[in-house]
Design a protein around this nucleic acid. Structure first.
Lengths: 111, 111
DNA sequence: CCGCATCCTTCACGATACTG
DNA sequence: CAGTATCGTGAAGGATGCGG
């Protein structure tokens, strides 16, 4: 009965950890839609997030190799974020979660 | 450039919310492996979780229709939990997260 | 056996002010 | 512009005790 998965909850959890964070989905959404985005542009595109938290979540995604941070040594400073090729490998999962989420909201009468 | 997804981060987030919770993955893992599990059995199978939290997360999964709770009016009481057919629809997502997580841990040198 | 009530801790996130 | 520093808050989770 549904073998496999042995001890593997932790592997699922490790994925969960990467994409868990109040704004990470929204960040990824924008990065999937646009190759390079400046920090200030992300701030504008994501109403409600604070500078501190946006920075933090972007850095976490960078740590995991999901996004690439590029600093242009100009004055005033310019920093651009982009999704990495590796980050794109998350896309199928996000798409499935998108579909499931849609069904789920319908099912629970929240859509 | 990667169209679609419009406004849909929230749909992904709604899925995320269902499976987010410190012990939910482990709970689902056990429920996928075994059709019916008593509460006390789950407690034993999941070292570290408290009664209060296990109850809470099971009830949340029940609310979402993922698990089915059956109370047998005996003395002493017996309560069994099972994954619902609907809950099984989560399986493909969890499997993908399993694979991705494995790759990710290898990639980041944590496996 | 199963679960609720109460209290406590921790941590993610938020608000605000300051700087290279 | 793109951060860091500091302080505050709430919700998730943990510990323990009582009860049907």
């Amino acid at each position: 009965m549904e073998e496999r998965l042995t001890q593997s909850e932790c592997l699922v959890a490790s994925t969960l950890q990467v994409i868990s964070g109040k704004w990470k989905m929204v960040i990824l959404y924008h990065l999937f839609s646009q190759p390079h985005i400046r920090f200030s542009e992300l701030m504008r595109k994501i109403p409600g997030v604070s500078q501190r938290v946006l920075t933090k979540q972007l850095r976490e995604l960078e740590q995991e190799g999901i996004v690439v941070r590029t600093v242009y040594p100009e004055v005033p400073p310019r920093v651009e974020y982009a999704i990495s090729p590796y980050g794109r490998s998350l896309r199928p999962i996000l798409d499935m979660m998108h579909s499931w989420g849609e069904q789920h909201l319908k099912r629970t009468g929240r859509l």
